[in-house]
Write a protein that binds this DNA or RNA. Sequence first.
DNA 1: GCCAACGTTGGC
DNA 2: GCCAACGTTGGC
Length: 137
Amino acid sequence: MRYWLIKSEPETYSIEDLISEDIGRWDGVRNYQARNFLKDMKLGDLCFFYRSVHKPAVEAVCKIVKEHYPDPTAESGDWVCVDVQFQNKLQREISLGEIKGNEALANMALLKQSRLSVQPVTVHEFDEILKMSEQKI
DNA sequence: GCCAACGTTGGC
DNA sequence: GCCAACGTTGGC
């Protein structure tokens, strides 16, 4: 079991969009590094749903329910997508600012490679963010 | 809206 | 193969 973080701008695809669909196709990735991470995702892996650009924050948890397959939105090239299912919203969202303020999260790819839209998260980072979401500020 | 970071493209 | 120009992402 591995853990991931996937980003989306709310104007493009928000967590509410995923909740209403329940299962959503994570397509449109056009970056090789992100594509390779999509290919590494396995059934049952969990990922954070991260809202980028507008009040950046981790909002929810979702699950990989279909492993990589060719991205139907790609006209050419070896691009893939996966299907993710909504699991739950965090009790409270964890902002990028809070992540930056937590030393245990200092090595997150989110902070080191700000433009990477699909990235791995360690089990420790995953648990830490869940723990933060269960605590009041 | 601005700008830094970074990826891609194309001339040489 | 280098590098300038340009486009995109995403934080602020």
